[in-house]
Amino acid sequence: MTVPDMLAELRDVSRRTFYRWRELGLAPPCMKLPNGELRAWRSDFRAWLDTLSEEAA
């Protein structure tokens, strides 16, 4: 998934907030491509979302 794909799923989260989460180690696991863009496996993104919902419960 690209960062815009993840932001679309997260809805009200800005790009800046997403990158801040990365700085703090709170974002889903991502890999950096040689061109500097970030990608995440959809399964990792979904697992990350699941952990957030478990923490909120």
Rank of each mutant, 00 (worst) to 15 (best):
M31Y: 09
P4Q: 00
A47N: 06
R22Y: 05
V13T: 13
W41E: 13
K32N: 07
A47C: 07
M6C: 07
G25C: 00
F45A: 02
S53Y: 12
G25F: 01
T51H: 12
A27E: 06
V3E: 03
D5W: 06
L24E: 08
P29R: 07
R11D: 12
L24N: 05
F18W: 02
L38N: 12
R16Q: 03
L49V: 07
R42M: 08
S43A: 12
D5I: 04
L38W: 14
G25E: 01
S53W: 13
P34F: 04
P29L: 07
R22V: 05
W21Q: 07
E23K: 00
D12T: 02
A56Y: 13
N35H: 06
D50N: 14
W48F: 10
L7H: 03
L49G: 09
T2M: 00
E55R: 14
T17H: 10
D5L: 04
A57R: 14
L38E: 12
A56F: 11
S43G: 10
S53I: 14
G36V: 04
R39T: 04
P4T: 00
D12M: 01
E23Y: 00
M1W: 08
P34W: 03
D44N: 12
P29A: 07
S43D: 12
A40G: 09
R39S: 05
F45K: 03
R46W: 15
M31Q: 11
L49F: 09
L49C: 09
M1V: 07
W48Y: 08
L38P: 15
W21V: 05
G36P: 05
K32Q: 07
L26A: 10
P34R: 02
W21C: 05
R15C: 06
R15F: 06
R39C: 04
Y19H: 06
E55K: 14
T51Q: 13
L52K: 15
R11E: 09
E55M: 11
S53R: 11
G36K: 05
T17S: 10
R42E: 11
T2F: 00
A56W: 14
A47V: 08
R11K: 08
A57G: 13
W21H: 05
S43T: 13
R16N: 02
P28Q: 06
P28Y: 02
P34D: 07
E54P: 13
P4N: 01
T51G: 12
M6S: 09
T17C: 10
